[in-house]
Design a protein around this nucleic acid. Structure first.
Lengths: 140, 140
DNA sequence: ATCATTGCAAATCTTTTGCACACCA
DNA sequence: TGGTGTGCAAAAGATTTGCAATGAT
């Protein structure tokens, strides 16, 4: 929430950002932690959280909540895209199509609301989860 | 995740559902708890969570995660709509327009993915938060 | 030198769960 | 009666925070 006045470039912050520059996407904090530990084995989970927050604040990352209750982060330099999310296994896939209609765009910025970004997601079941469900029904 | 075989109608479950039938929308568990306590002062927060989960499973409620890290629930009988969410104060407003384009709809159901519902949200700053921000900059 | 950042651990917050008892069908 | 639901309290999981030490500018 609070913005720092002179953010500094530390090896931790750089290493975290590098993870996202390597094409990685929608990563949870714990996943970032594990990946960064390859470079910096002594980094702490708290530092990862603090940097994910800082990087989101300064616009380098985009933080989003997912139905499993975990926040995930993506690099804002990534191509604009949306998500297909499996309700069963929380797997997230990208879709490149944006559904914004012109008449919706007009509504986004008004004097009462300053739009910053939008989010579109389709929830459902992936192939794996549907097959598991089917197998379950046949047994039970 | 697991479905009960014979869900029963209890006064607690009915009271929770009544809250949503009274036009209430995007309520967090704690808010539901406070509202239901007017009717049933002895209900427990755990029971609220269990029923919100059960009602979501059986399709009476729609559970959604919001950026403040809390799940919110809405009645599925509500008119189809989407949300405008303030990044500053987490206030949620409804918009009735759905941005789905025909070509997107075609993509939602494939042999690899069974779409159940979708979600569209615009994030930004509401009037109040913009004014607070402006006041802060002028002072600092 | 100054002040942001770090590591560690403790604390917070939301949500889940174990258990004994109560209740609906 | 049998299994589902409840209240309570403890547990779990994600995220935040206090603090003294470290590091960037």
């Amino acid at each position: 929430m609070t913005c720092m006045q002179n953010p500094r470039s530390t090896k931790q912050r750089r290493a975290i950002m590098e993870v996202f520059d390597r094409q990685k996407s929608h990563l949870a904090a714990e996943e970032v932690y594990q990946l960064v530990r390859n470079q910096l084995p002594k980094i702490s989970l708290g530092t990862v959280y603090r940097n994910l927050e800082a990087l989101s604040q300064q616009g380098d990352l985009q933080k989003t909540m997912f139905p499993d209750g975990k926040a995930r982060y993506e690099g804002t330099k990534d191509e604009h895209h949306h998500h297909i999310v499996c309700i069963g296994c929380s797997n997230i896939m990208d879709i490149s199509i944006c559904p914004l209609k012109p008449e919706v765009k007009e509504l986004l910025n008004t004097e009462d609301f300053e739009a910053v970004y939008h989010r579109f997601e389709v929830y459902g079941y992936c192939k794996d989860c549907r097959e598991k469900e089917k197998a379950l029904k046949e047994k039970g």
